[in-house]
C-alpha cells in the first residue's frame, strides 16, 4: 500500500472491480474519460476482463494497478501503470476517478504523485508516458503541473461523440521529476488534506 495525504493506493479487490467498474463504465456518458470508447457493459464482460488480466500475468503482462481510496475509506477510482517496458525502462500511466464528487479536490494529483514516485524510486523506471484526448483538459492540467511535458499530438486519432479528436501523449524523464515532497508543497496538498479531513471530523 502506498500512503498519501488525501488518498492511499491499495490492491484491487474483485468485489470492487465487479461492482464499481460496472457502475463507472455504465455511468452517465458525460463522466466517461475514456478515449471515446464506450458502450453499456455487462457484469459478465467485466468478469471476463478480470480473468484476462489475471491470466495475463502468466503471459508476461507487466501492468501494476491500484485502487485509489480516500483516507476515510471511500474507493474513488484506480490508477497504475498499464504497461511497463522494463527493457527501455518506460512505464505507461493510466488513471480513472469514477466519482465525480472527487474531481478537482487534489485526490487524483495525490494519487499521481504516489505512482510516479513508486515508478521512479522502486521500479527504477527512467521515463513515464501517458495518453489523453484533447477534450480532457482537466487531465492535461493535472499532469503538466506534476512535470509531464506534451510530446505528441496525433491528429484525429480518436472519435468522441461523433467528432474527431486529437490524442495527446505526455512524457516525463526521471531527471525532470521535481520529487513528491516538492510538488506536495508547490501544489498545497498538505493544506488541502488538512482542510478536507478537518471538515470531515466536525
Amino acid at each position: 500500500m502506498l500512503s498519501g495525504l488525501l488518498v492511499d493506493l491499495v490492491p484491487f479487490t474483485r468485489e470492487w472491480y465487479q461492482e464499481k467498474m460496472h457502475a463507472y463504465w455504465n455511468n452517465e456518458s458525460r463522466l466517461w474519460a475514456t478515449m471515446g470508447e464506450c458502450m453499456p457493459i455487462s457484469r459478465a464482460s467485466i468478469a471476463r476482463i478480470i480473468e484476462e488480466r489475471a491470466q495475463g500475468r502468466a503471459r508476461g503482462y507487466s501492468g501494476v494497478h491500484f485502487m485509489i481510496r480516500t483516507k476515510d475509506g471511500v474507493t474513488i477510482g484506480n490508477i497504475g501503470l498499464n504497461w511497463v517496458d522494463y527493457h527501455s525502462r518506460c512505464g505507461y500511466l493510466g488513471a480513472w476517478i469514477g466519482e465525480e464528487g472527487y474531481w478537482g479536490g487534489g485526490y487524483g494529483t495525490d494519487a499521481l504523485l504516489l505512482v510516479v514516485e513508486y515508478a521512479f524510486d522502486w521500479l527504477d523506471l527512467r521515463r513515464l508516458a501517458l495518453g489523453t484526448m484533447a477534450l480532457n483538459v482537466r487531465a492535461q492540467r493535472n499532469v503538466e503541473k506534476c512535470g509531464f511535458r506534451l510530446e505528441g499530438r496525433e491528429r484525429q486519432a480518436t472519435l468522441v461523440n461523433g467528432e474527431w479528436l486529437d490524442a495527446l501523449t505526455y512524457g516525463m524523464l526521471r531527471g525532470e521529476w521535481p520529487g513528491r515532497e516538492t510538488l506536495i508543497e508547490r501544489l498545497g496538498l498538505r493544506e488541502k488534506a488538512a482542510q478536507r479531513y478537518a471538515i470531515q471530523e466536525e
Binding site: S88, R89, R127, A129, E151
Partner: peptide, 15 residues
C-alpha cells in the same frame, strides 16, 4: 511529424 517521444527506446547502449 506529430511528436517526439523523448528517450523512449533503449537502443545500442543509449536511450
Amino acid at each position: 511529424h506529430e511528436g517526439t517521444l523523448r528517450q523512449h527506446i533503449r537502443w545500442d547502449g543509449d536511450y
